[in-house]
């Protein structure tokens, strides 16, 4: 793969990367919806889930898309039409841009930028604007309340998310996603390098904070106050119907997949499996598969929490972020820094 890519012109490489990037959004999102949303929750609730469309209902998602694509698209006449229609674009494009930083192997990456994880964190916060646009543009009371709640929640949980990453960056000494994977592959835990150093072991506080903040960033239960159906119908999505609603829905699961991938790279070693040489050309093929397995594992946690916990009240939600997660994340940075310099 190295050889093939290196011989191509830049625009040809980029075209290949763009196509692969598209697949990298759709396949995880589709797998997660089928595996976790359709099947996992069904088994948790003692039912079978979709069984008719395709073997074991595996084509159910395609059937759903086929259904949604025929639905009438209703724009409320009081709505701000441009903002209303632009909101799904902002949300989905910010998700699509997150994929760019993910490395799939030593040479299988989209960009090799030294600001990798920083770029991802910056881009991920753009989706807040899309959600606020959806809430405001709909000119509906439910949407407005939902949009404002979502904004308050997303900015509150973005801080622990960002601060939890700092511990990883201190250990890896780079913000490059590829560098973070290699730092974990070559690392050692107090002199023992048998399995490298997956940062989930040395940064377990950061990992816990990151996963909780991620759950909130994705507005998954128990942090789904912005779309609480008992109070706000579906929050900022209330006025969206048909295809535009589906776009928000796909965006939600694609973001869950991409965030799981980022967490897998930061804390679980990304495309690397212990025992092999990280420079091995094998990883250009094996890497994406390994990463996908880690994505499914981490997103299982997300959906497990989603279907087990009751919803937080709005004040509990803000309290958890400001009074617990942010101080813990800051303490984690200081402790990691002290250990890095002294040990």
């Amino acid at each position: 793969m190295t050889l093939i890519l290196a011989e191509l012109a830049w625009w040809q490489q980029t075209s290949i990367r763009v196509v692969v990037g598209l697949v990298a959004v759709l396949i995880p999102a589709g797998t997660l919806v089928y595996l976790h949303l359709f099947k996992l929750v069904s088994f948790m609730q003692s039912r079978l889930g979709p069984m008719e469309a395709g073997p074991y209902g595996s084509l159910q998602l395609l059937a759903e898309v086929g259904k949604f694509i025929q639905k009438e698209d209703i724009v409320p006449r009081r709505a701000d039409r441009f903002v209303f229609k632009a909101a799904p674009f902002v949300v989905l494009v910010s998700t699509f841009l997150l994929v760019v930083v993910l490395p799939g192997g030593p040479d299988a990456f989209f960009i090799d930028n030294d600001l990798g994880i920083y770029l991802a964190l910056a881009v991920s916060s753009v989706s807040v604007i899309g959600i606020l646009m959806a809430g405001w543009g709909s000119a509906s009371k439910y949407s407005l309340m939902g949009g404002l709640r979502a904004t308050g929640q997303l900015i509150a949980y973005e801080l622990p998310l960002i601060l939890a990453v700092v511990g990883v960056v201190i250990q890896a000494e780079t913000m490059n996603m590829q560098g973070i994977v290699l730092a974990q592959a070559d690392g050692e835990i107090f002199g023992w390098g048998g399995i490298g150093n997956p940062f989930v072991i040395t940064q377990f506080v950061g990992f816990a904070v990151f996963m909780i903040a991620m759950q909130a960033e994705l507005t998954q239960t128990p942090f789904d106050m912005p779309v609480a159906e008992s109070e706000l119908v579906t929050g900022y999505m209330t006025e969206y119907s048909g295809l535009r609603f589906l776009l928000f829905f796909i965006g939600e699961f694609a973001t869950a997949g991409v965030f799981s991938a980022i967490a897998a790279v930061l804390f679980l070693g990304g495309w690397y499996v212990p025992g092999l040489d990280p420079a091995d050309n094998l990883f250009n093929v094996l890497g994406p598969v390994v990463l996908m397995v880690k994505i499914v594992g981490l997103s299982f946690l997300i959906f497990w929490f989603r279907f087990t916990f009751p919803r937080f009240r709005e004040d509990q939600l803000q309290r958890l972020a400001w009074k617990f997660l942010i101080p813990i994340a800051l303490a984690n940075i200081v402790v990691t820094g002290v250990l890095k310099v002294l040990v």
């Binding site: 763009v18 639905k71 989905l92 494009v93 841009l97 760019v100 960009i111 295809l243």
Partner: peptide
């Protein structure tokens, strides 16, 4: 150039979402 790639990905995202909505426009009643 890495940022150019990021820009291309962003533009492609807009085009894809637009194409998907455009396809829906052809198929749905109004």
């Amino acid at each position: 150039r890495t940022y150019l790639t990021v820009g291309i990905f962003g533009a492609l995202g807009v085009v894809l979402v637009g194409a998907f909505l455009g396809l829906g426009r052809l198929l749905r009643p109004s």
